[in-house]
Structures are given as C-alpha cells and as structure tokens.
Computed example of a mutant assay.
Amino acid sequence: MLANLRLLLAALWAGSVWTVSYLAAPSAFAALDSTQAGNVVGIMLTRLAWLSMALAPLLALLVWRAPELDARRRRWLYWLIAGMLVCSLVVYLGLQPMMAAIREVAGPAGVRASPQWGTFAALHGVSQVLYLVETVLGAILVVKAR
C-alpha cells in the first residue's frame, strides 16, 4: 500500500508541474492580456510551490519507510525529491519575487515597455529552464517511485 501511495504522490507532483508548465500557463497567456496572465500564472506557481513543499517531505518519509527499496534506489529517490524541491523553491523564493518587483515598478505600461525588460526576460528564461529540469526529474521520479 505504501508503494502505491508513493507512486500516487509522485504522479500528483509531477503531473501538477507538467499541467501548470505546459498547459495552464501557455493557455493563460493565449487567452488573457500579459498582465492578467502573469497574475494568474503567478498564483498557480505559488500554489505549485506550496504543493511541492508539502509533497517533498511526505514522499521522503514514504521512501524512508519502504522496506522493499534497496539503498541505491532510496538514494536516487531522495536526490530526485530534493532536486524537484530545490527547483521549485529557487523559482518561488528567488525568481518570482524579483520578477514581481520588476512588474510592480513597470506600472501600467507593462514590463515590456520597462527598461528592466531584459532582466525580466532573463529571469523568466531561468525560471523556464528550472521548470523544464523539474519536469524531467518528475518523470524520472514517477518511473523510479514504483
């Protein structure tokens, strides 16, 4: 039963990252103006970060309590969980606040009209790379969590 729960939580976490990154965020930017879409996506990313902070320790506990896992596989799972959590926290605690500050300073004209546009675009690019890394780690976690 614990192995099934471990797989379910890994799939929930990875699936949430995939859904927000590749479905919800692009859809928001396709349907809304960039300011509204940025606000909506920011809320989704915040909730995703909180989900990551909840699921990482739960998964680590389930890995620790899994007698069927050998030491090598257990280490792999711990590294995958830690890697996903680090990606999420770097975006949530580091990049998102910096991007929000740039948006706030830009005012109603928007970030693209701001002299900070280059910085914002670079931060956004780093964020996208981290989410890509997190999605790959999530795929490996789902496969290894079984």
Rank of each mutant, 00 (worst) to 15 (best):
M1A: 09
M1K: 04
L2R: 15
A3E: 13
A3D: 10
R6W: 00
L8T: 04
L9C: 00
L9N: 01
W13S: 01
W13C: 01
W13D: 01
G15Y: 08
G15N: 04
G15T: 00
G15V: 00
V17H: 11
V17Y: 13
T19I: 11
V20H: 06
V20Q: 09
S21P: 10
A24Y: 15
P26W: 09
S27C: 15
A28M: 14
A28G: 10
A28N: 13
L32S: 09
D33C: 03
S34W: 11
V41Q: 09
G42V: 12
M44V: 05
L45T: 11
L48K: 04
A49Q: 01
W50V: 06
L51A: 04
L51C: 02
A54L: 04
A54H: 06
L55D: 00
A56K: 08
P57T: 01
L58A: 02
L61I: 00
L62Q: 00
L62E: 00
V63F: 03
W64L: 10
W64E: 07
W64M: 13
R65A: 02
A66C: 09
P67N: 12
E68D: 14
A71C: 03
R72F: 04
R73C: 05
R75W: 11
W76Q: 10
G83F: 06
G83W: 08
G83M: 12
V86C: 09
V86H: 05
C87D: 01
C87E: 14
V91S: 02
V91E: 06
Y92M: 10
L93D: 07
G94L: 09
G94Y: 03
L95Q: 03
M99F: 08
A101H: 08
A101Q: 15
A101G: 09
R103Y: 03
R103L: 02
E104G: 01
V105R: 15
A106P: 06
P108C: 07
P108S: 10
R112V: 14
R112H: 11
S114G: 10
W117N: 05
W117M: 15
G118P: 06
G118I: 02
G118R: 14
A122K: 12
V126N: 09
V129T: 15
E134Y: 08
L137E: 05
I140P: 03
I140C: 02
A145F: 00
